[in-house]
């Protein structure tokens, strides 16, 4: 990036302009959420809306936090999201490997059926699944919140796409070395695709973290409820306390951002490798 042609400099400027404009645009709702969480109850309903709060109401956070047993919800959410994520990673990695690398009778049909299940809206499956969970006597247990989500076609398919980009030669070489499939998968395939697996982990964790309707359906006691249920506390049939909903939403997001920042290092490792040369 030293002495460059003018066109290169312009290209560089354009690049940053696009990135900054895009970032501002995509970030707008996030900023809005944070600013709204600091508005007063009257300011938040003003039309047209103000952008910067006239008085910063940090007390909204304390009020939101005190309104529901958030510590318990927090523990439940962390537990459910963690177990679900670890479990779904495991099952998805195994299945993705089968689809990407193994040949078995009926593979095409199984794969087609597998993909076909994605094509029916989840809303149609909800009531039947609730009846199933009831018959299994899983209502009000962690099992009910976790087990149905331990298989995920999206993640399996995504990982199998990544696995299939790994050169076939590596697999054959491993075969020659008498490396078992399972060993190959976890010693070579998984480390090679850790960017993708980390991404799936984040997606799964966020999905589980934000889920609302299913956990509400399968639980009854407050002890089993999760963070997203805390948000409902601030609304009623006639209206809602939006500044508190926003404050609680901000509280909800913090752990995910921390996890992301922590995991980002792993996603970025590959980059550091190429990055130093520039």
């Amino acid at each position: 990036m030293k002495s460059r042609k003018p066109t290169a400099i312009i290209a560089e400027i354009v690049k940053y302009v696009i990135l900054i404009a895009g970032a501002l645009f995509t970030l707008l709702p996030f900023v809005w959420m944070v600013l709204s969480s600091l508005k007063s109850g009257s300011e938040i309903v003003a039309i047209p809306p103000t952008i910067i709060p006239t008085h910063f109401m940090f007390s909204n956070y304390a009020e939101a936090w005190a309104a529901a047993p958030f510590p318990r919800y927090f523990l439940n959410t962390v537990f459910v999201a963690t177990v679900t994520t670890v479990g779904v990673l495991l099952t998805s990695i195994l299945a993705a490997f089968a689809f990407a690398r193994l040949d078995f009778p009926g593979k095409k049909i199984v794969f087609s059926l597998f993909m076909a299940t994605l094509m029916i809206p989840g809303e149609m499956l909800l009531i039947t699944n609730f009846v199933t969970v009831t018959k299994l006597k899983w209502v009000d247990t962690y099992k009910a919140m976790i087990v149905p989500w331990l298989a995920n076609v999206f993640y399996t398919y995504l990982l199998s796409q990544f696995f299939s980009s790994v050169p076939e030669a590596l697999y054959l070489a491993a075969k020659v070395d008498k490396c078992s499939d399972l060993k190959f998968l976890f010693k070579i395939m998984v480390p090679m695709n850790k960017n993708a697996i980390t991404t799936v982990a984040i997606l799964s964790f966020i999905g589980s973290w934000n889920s609302f309707l299913w956990p509400l359906l399968v639980t009854n006691s407050t002890n089993m409820r999760v963070l997203s249920h805390g948000l409902v506390r601030f609304q009623s049939e006639a209206g809602a306390q939006y500044q508190l909903i926003m404050a609680a939403s901000c509280i909800l997001v913090v752990p995910i951002v921390i996890i992301y920042l922590f995991l980002r290092k792993y996603i970025l490792e590959g980059m550091a490798y190429t990055g130093v040369k520039g």
């Binding site: 990135l19 895009g22 970032a23 995509t26 970030l27 709702p29 996030f30 809005w32 959420m33 709204s36 966020i206 948000l231 939006y242 909903i245 926003m246 939403s249 909800l252 997001v253 995910i256 951002v257 992301y260 920042l261 980002r264 970025l268």
Partner: peptide, 15 residues
């Protein structure tokens, strides 16, 4: 930048 582009994904749907 990467973090900024990730944040919308965790923003509350209400917001």
């Amino acid at each position: 930048f990467q973090t900024l582009y990730f944040l919308p994904y965790v923003t509350s749907v209400i917001a």
